[in-house]
Computed example of a mutant assay.
Amino acid sequence: MADLNLFSDVEESGWLEALPSYQKEIVSELLASKSHEEAALAWLEASVDNTSPFTGQPQPEKKFLPLLKKEIHKLLCGNPEYAADRNELAQLTQTKENKTAIVSMVSAVIGAKVGLAATFIAPAIVIIFLMIAKTSLNAWCALETSEN
């Protein structure tokens, strides 16, 4: 497995800086009043109407956060499905200053996999990264494995 050194020595502001200022401000406000999980849900649910396809059929309830967490788990925790992407991500992590590129790459890869726009899920990706940074990648991988 590629060595992903994404979360060592990264302060919360480092991940938030990866977002455009308008998203960073909203996410910061959400995090000031909500848990990380609640903030990610609030972000994803606030814009859900803009991401659903146009159709006359009723749409099933979207469960974006569990889907994103599942795919991020697969990417970061060693699922062979994401081996090439993980290697590319490992190369990006060599320059710890490049948080915007990391968030953009992960958002694009995960967004393409789940059928959501990278710009829509980038703030949720950052919030999930903040959750991981609170513990460690290994602990998060073990926890998410037990919950799936």
Rank of each mutant, 00 (worst) to 15 (best):
A40D: 01
E37Y: 11
G56L: 13
L137Y: 00
A42R: 01
V27L: 04
S104T: 10
H73Y: 15
L137M: 10
E61F: 07
G115M: 09
E97D: 14
K99A: 08
A142F: 12
L41P: 04
H36F: 11
L44P: 02
T93E: 06
S35D: 12
N87V: 15
L92H: 00
Q91A: 15
S35A: 08
K63E: 14
T119Y: 09
N79K: 02
F54H: 13
I121K: 02
L76H: 01
L137I: 08
S33M: 11
A142S: 14
C141A: 06
Q91V: 15
A118S: 15
S146Y: 00
S28H: 05
L116E: 13
E61R: 04
V106Q: 04
G111E: 13
A90F: 00
S28K: 09
L92K: 00
S136Q: 01
P58S: 12
A40T: 01
F64K: 01
L67W: 00
L30M: 07
A142W: 08
R86S: 11
N98Q: 06
L76I: 06
P58D: 11
K34T: 04
M131H: 05
W43N: 01
L130C: 04
H73G: 08
I72F: 11
E38M: 04
E71I: 06
A108L: 13
N79H: 09
V48E: 09
P66F: 15
P60Q: 13
